[in-house]
């Protein structure tokens, strides 16, 4: 049985901490999905029940949490592509470090405009 102490394939420097971040973001999104499907199911209870919960979510604290969730999704998705490229692209392993920087740049390019738009909506309503 594999154990944490045995390490993993992606161990070492950038690879190590992106691997940890990939795990944490994956678990976070998975936990969110559980709650998300349950609260979306309220549309089968009544329009009032669903709207009440959605209204309760429309505050700065939840708004910031949503931005955090989207950050996790963007990171996990881009880093997931990097993992896939390392596995399938012949030159992937050689460029894995450059791809790590590409993930960071891609993250900023996607997250910054999102955060500006989303937080503007959250804080001006």
């Amino acid at each position: 049985m594999a154990q944490a102490a045995n390490g993993t394939l992606y161990r070492g420097r950038e690879g190590m901490w992106t691997w940890v971040a990939h795990r944490i973001s994956g678990v976070l999104i998975f936990l969110f999905l559980f709650a998300h499907v349950l609260d979306t199911a309220l549309v089968r209870v009544s329009p009032e029940a669903y709207n009440e919960v959605m209204d309760a979510y429309k505050n700065p604290v939840v708004g910031l949490a949503e931005a955090g969730l989207v950050a996790a999704v963007i990171f996990h998705a881009l880093n997931g592509l990097r993992i896939i490229a390392v596995d399938f692209w012949a030159k992937g392993p050689r460029y894995q470090k450059q791809m790590f920087w590409a993930v960071l740049v891609g993250f900023v390019v996607l997250f910054a405009p999102f955060a500006i738009r989303h937080l503007t909506i959250v804080f001006t309503h």
Partner: peptide, 19 residues
């Protein structure tokens, strides 16, 4: 995420009628 958070009124527009 793009359709539900960026288009229209973003998160503010999410309610029963939206779904």
């Amino acid at each position: 995420l793009f359709v539900n958070l960026m288009l229209g009124e973003g998160i503010h527009g999410v309610d029963f009628a939206f779904v």
